[in-house]
Every structure is written in C-alpha cells, then in structure tokens.
Nucleic acid binder design. Sequence first.
DNA 1: TTTTGAGTTGTTCGA
DNA 2: GTCGAACAACTCAAA
Length: 478
Amino acid sequence: MKRRSILWFREDLRLDDNPALVEAAKDSEVIPVFIWSEGSNWPMGAASRWWLHHSLLSLDASLRLHGSRLILRKGNPLDELHAILRETGAQRICFNRRYTPFGLQQDAKVENALKNDRSDVHVFSNYLLFEPWTIKNKSGAPFRVFTPFWKACLAEHIHQRSCIAPSEWTSPPLWPKSLAIEDLALLPKLNWANRWLEFWSPGERGAQSQLKHFIENAFFQYDQARDLPSVQGTSRLSAHLHFGEISVRKIWDSIHQAAEKKQIAPATWQKSQFITELGWREFAYHLLHHFPETPHSPLKPAFDSFQWNENKDWQTAWQKGKTGFPIVDAGMRELWQTGWMHNRVRMITASFLVKDLLQPWQMGARWFWDTLVDADLASNTLGWQWSAGCGADAQPFFRIFNPVLQGEKFDADGTYVRKWVPELSKLPNVWIHKPWKAPDAVIQNAGVELENDYPRPIVRHEIAREVAMEALRKIKPA
DNA sequence: TTTTGAGTTGTTCGA
DNA sequence: GTCGAACAACTCAAA
C-alpha cells in the first residue's frame, strides 16, 4: 500500500517552495489540511481573518488543479490531526515551522505527541532566512541592535535554494470529511471588508504577480520612492509574506536574479534598503523569540513606570481618523478602508498616538493587530516599541514626529491626504497639512467648515511635544 | 573590565 | 530657504 501523508498548512499557504509539500508528496498520497483554531493568546484579528478566508479559497483552487483539495477543520489541532490520522489511515505528517512563541510551543507539543503515537513527523524551516536562535553576538547573547544583528546574519551562509512544487502527486482514494469555508466564519459580520478585493489578491498567484510587479516597477527605485505614501513605491508583499503565500527565500532569489541581470554585485544588492527591510523582519522574529513578553511589555523595563494619559475620546479620534492632523487621519482612514497603511504613515500615526496623545503603545498595537491584513506579531511588536522608544532601539527623544512636517516632507503635494481625507481636497498645497492655520477666506473657498466638516487639531503639537519630553525625562532607570 | 563608538527612517534653532 | 549643530541620553557591541 502506498504511504499516506497529512500536509498540515498554517502560515505557508502556497505550493511553490514548500518543503513540507515536497516531503509529503514523496512516494506518498497527500492529504492537505488546514485547521482553524483560536486557542492563541493573540487570536487572529478581523482583517487578517478576511485575508485568510480568501487565501484558503485560493489554496483550495490551486490544489484542485492537481486533483487534490484542501480539507478544512476547526478545533484543537492535535485532536483534529489525530482524528484525520484515524479517518484516513495516514502515517506521516509534514509541516513547516511557525515562529511566534505560541506557535513554536504548540508545534513542539504536537510534534512530541504525534511521535509518541509512532506517527512519522517531518518539520521544516522556511518562514525565515535565519533561525532566530542561531544568531548571537560575541558574548553568545541575542542582539538588541539591528545593525550588528543584520551584519552577523549576512556573514552567515544563506541557504537560498528554493524547492519547486511536485508537478503531480497522488491523492487518497477517499477524502476525510471537511468543513465548508463558511463554517470557519472568518469574514467580518459587518460589511466592512466588502471592497477589499479591489485592493488585494490574497493567495499564491496574487503574491507572485505582486512580487513580479514590485521587481519590475519599484525595487530599483525603492530608496527614493518607499517613503512616499501616494506612490506605489513599497512592495505590498507584507500580507502575502505573513500568510506564507510566498516565501522570503523566493523573494531573495528573485531579487538576486533581477540584480544579476543588471550586473549588480551581491555586495551591493544585499545592502539595498529593501533587502534590509527583510532583515528587519528577521530581527523582529529574533527579538520576539528571545523576549516573548514584548507583545505586551516594554523591552526596556524602565518604561514600566512611564506615565500614560489614557483618554478614550482621543483613542477614538485616532482610530477614526479625526484627530485634525491630515496626514494622521489619512493614514488611519487608509487603514480602515483597505486593511493596510503605508509604512511611513504607520510611523507617523504611531508616533502621534504615543508621543502627542500619550496613549499606551499597546492600545495602538492592538488596533493595528485587528485592522491590518498583514498583522504580524513580531513586526507589529517591533514597530510599536520602536515608535514608543521602549524597544530594541531606544532613542525616544529623537522620535517625536512633527505631523505637519512629516506630511509636508513625504506628501508634499497632498495627493495622499486628498485621497483619504476628501473633505480637504480643495485646499491648496500650502495648507493641506495644516488647515487650522489657513486664512478664513482660503478655508471657505475650499468649501471646508472647520469642526463641522473636519476637526480642529485635538492637541497642539508644540505643547504635546513638551509634555511628552517631560514624561520621558521622568522615567526612572530600571 | 573598561572604554569607545554608534545607534532605520527627527526636530528645532540660529546663522 | 538652507545648513550644521544641538537636542538629551542611554545602552549595546566589540575591542
């Protein structure tokens, strides 16, 4: 009898460069399975669930082209895997490792339990370029500064061999029972995400075409364009990467090839800003692994004593994009309307919440977690702690962004603000980032009535900055 | 052990 | 408008 293998999909919703699939298909019938489970202390946010819903549909469609299909289950993963083993008589289970503290822990439990039951378990690594526990500084401790971390990574040999999907594989004579996608209830109940398919193409095919598009149109201009939120200068691969619709190795390889074609040396393209961004993703997982409390606690303990000034009205204004600062409001509305926000604007809105409004960074992190289609525990944590100044790169005094300056610098012609804050669209460029300073006649001409059509600023930045500086000075050293 | 240089993406002030 | 220095201050990483 031919071997029978369960291929357990999680954050690797693709067929290409999927070592677990290659192993599962080796001389074996393949049973692809996805198990929806909500046991984690960071249950998936609403926007990510929307993405997952569509990604699973896409994965099932790809599998069906191979005469296969995706078996959907929900509940405790170990129980479900046991049930499927019983139902199908499979003897092997293959999966790719996850790297959140919860994911690693759960996978270890599952792996041990299954091995104890004499199942044949194969676990692979391909979510990251480097295992978080292999990179160490000269004292053998984890890095807390990005630059030496990434330098140490690049000095390592990168195993960049991708594997390709088996051209065909066999299916079992009978499929185990599967839920319908609707049974997982992943889509939001409100009609919040209805238009998102206009913005995004979840799934492996969408991921690959986005990568191609990025390399052809934006990679070589990344340094100049990545900071401009009105321009498609970034990769927009984050959600695809998070769900493993494309592997980071595949991205690395593709850029390698494109650079080679232009005769750009490895030493050069490996130092490019975009590759460095991949490095930040590695660093985020490095930190999350070594400091698993950081999704809710500051890496720098001194910040435990920081005096926040919780204010529900301000939090709501920030969430809804009604702070009176156009660049902040544009970002928050882009987030709400598309499930995504440009990276530059993530920094601006985060700095504003934490420094200008003195709201706890954890509150912002939770909001992003729920509303971003690319929500990733490692990157979200790193980003918020960086903005708050309590993380791996503590320069809190230097990181109080001026929302007007940032707007004028990175959205000079106001295109981004006009798109997401249309009530200001008729304001001339000079005033687009500071409508409260515009002369009455200009405001009237633009058809805006401050307070009714668009709020006045909920704080004065110059004062808020001083207050934040004072609060930062008061932090007691740990 | 001590010292030294440096740290993703800033802002403000004064010349 | 542009430029460089100062801001305020600490910890990390390596020599």
